[in-house]
């Protein structure tokens, strides 16, 4: 089983929440941008890949108990999101890669 830190290293992810714990093990991967959809389908311990970057991402990640969030395609997180993520201990990463490329690599790592 891979942990968040393995994903971070192998995908060369940019860490926007240095204070958040990276030791948690990952249970799988979920991809989506419509927050209500993600809310219903993301699962505990998942890596959530999205292009959404507003503060509500923190609430959805927290309520679904996702392990970490990867913002793909060079999207930058809003400062308000990072503040909330730091407070709630949510890992937020970014990557310049397209969603598909990230998903393929996540599959290899998991």
């Amino acid at each position: 089983m891979a942990a968040i830190k393995d994903l971070q290293q192998q995908l060369e992810l940019v860490d926007h929440t240095p204070g958040a714990d990276k030791g948690r093990e990952l249970s799988g991967c979920y991809i989506g941008d419509l927050l209500s959809w993600v809310m219903a389908h993301a699962f505990s311990g998942c890596v959530w890949i999205t292009i959404m970057s507003n503060i509500n991402v923190a609430a959805v990640a927290s309520l679904t108990d996702a392990a970490c969030v990867i913002m793909a395609e060079g999207v930058e997180p809003d400062p308000e999101l990072l503040k909330r993520a730091e407070r709630d201990g949510i890992c937020i990463f970014t990557s310049p890669l397209p969603v598909y490329d990230i998903a393929v690599k996540v599959h290899e790592i998991l």
Partner: peptide, 16 residues
């Protein structure tokens, strides 16, 4: 634009 309005609100509330 913020990712809401998927038309899943009440259906999700009913489902869960």
């Amino acid at each position: 634009d913020l990712g809401f309005g998927a038309g899943m609100g009440l259906p999700n509330m009913k489902r869960y």
